[in-house]
Design a protein around this nucleic acid. Structure first.
Lengths: 187, 187
DNA sequence: GCCATCTGTGGCACTCGGTGTCATATTTGG
DNA sequence: CCAAATATGACACCGAGTGCCACAGATGGC
């Protein structure tokens, strides 16, 4: 079970993240120092780094373990399901979750340092996904291509959604992108 | 024409890059300070930053303006050529150029900070490529997908090449990956 | 209630990447 | 030969991140 220890730790992390996002929204990411955040949450800079490894990470709360989670969800799917179909189904769920924190994503997109960190996270996630697909028996080269293409699909959807001013349902766009790429992964 | 000014500047950059790579090979990237590099090239840390914006950039000499160059090469292709075919042709050429500095790439792959910087560069390049494809009349969503898929192809090829221990010709792998993805971009 | 222990914390000093400033060579052009 | 542009070095400075240590508070056994 989850002990008191972990619960307070999660609470402090949430407090820090909350204060940080407030300050970022007010002054911007670069204009806010770690010391500012720590003081706003009533602690020292040194303690901040006991909860988050870097200043950037304070923004990526839930997305943090995305790679691991996606890999598990892939592994949990029926084994005979087509790999591309499987990816489609799993990432469809994630689209909603990412969509839920649109404001955080806007901040990320407008801040080079955060954008970079996001690229890193995605790269890690992609690596895990490749492994998960390989575990289902997909040949390595195809697994690489499929994982990257799927990531590209989500990315393209996000941009297309911005381009159209949010007038189209994101899940519809996801389905369209995956369908478009489907012919490449039929066997 | 190219004045003396630019030539000496290029020479100093080359000198710095050379010394830096030596030191990185000896001690590793993180264990080498910018001051070490500057001193090895007979100058001050302050001057180093007059030639390279960051410590990482000293490694990416020729790749630096990749995005811009690729975009231009795309624009220079016959206008009626199929977009995917066009991408294939252009990036086929780049594969050779990247392949030529395999040792630098090995350093990059084994150094998180450099790997991150590479991800950034690729992201910039992708943005330019999307624009170049859009200029040819490709619909935005498809251009996004195509650019990302093409990048994925080169990436997948690099990894597959490592997996097979370099026994297969890289250009062959590139062709295979592009052919595999081709059905997704036919119309 | 007492003591040993473990964990969280603050403070401090330190490293290193990166920037602004200024004073001083060095080069360039007339 | 002189004046303006440019390159450089030295210095101070900032902020992210780390190692260290001393101290507080909670925990648990006796």
């Amino acid at each position: 079970m989850e002990g008191l220890r972990d619960r307070t730790r999660r609470a402090v992390r949430a407090e820090l993240a909350g204060r940080a996002l407030e300050l970022f929204a007010e002054r911007g990411f670069d204009e806010t120092t770690v010391d500012d955040i720590a003081r706003a949450a009533g602690m020292s800079k040194r303690s901040f780094f006991r909860y988050f490894p870097t200043k950037e990470d304070v923004v990526f709360g839930e997305i943090e373990t995305m790679g691991e989670q996606v890999a598990q969800e892939i592994a949990a799917r029926p084994p005979q399901e087509e790999p591309w179909q499987c990816l489609h189904a799993v990432l469809r769920g994630w689209e909603s979750r990412i969509n839920a924190q649109a404001d955080a994503m806007r901040l990320v997109e407008s801040t080079p340092a955060l954008r970079t960190r996001l690229l890193q996270k995605r790269d890690e996630a992609r690596t895990r996904i490749i492994q998960a697909l390989a575990d289902r028996g997909m040949p390595p080269l195809e697994a690489d291509l499929a994982a990257a293409a799927a990531g590209a699909a989500l990315d393209a959807v996000a941009r297309e959604w911005l381009r159209t001013g949010g007038s189209i349902d994101r899940l519809t766009l996801v389905d369209r992108a995956f369908t478009m790429l489907r012919p490449a992964f039929l066997g």
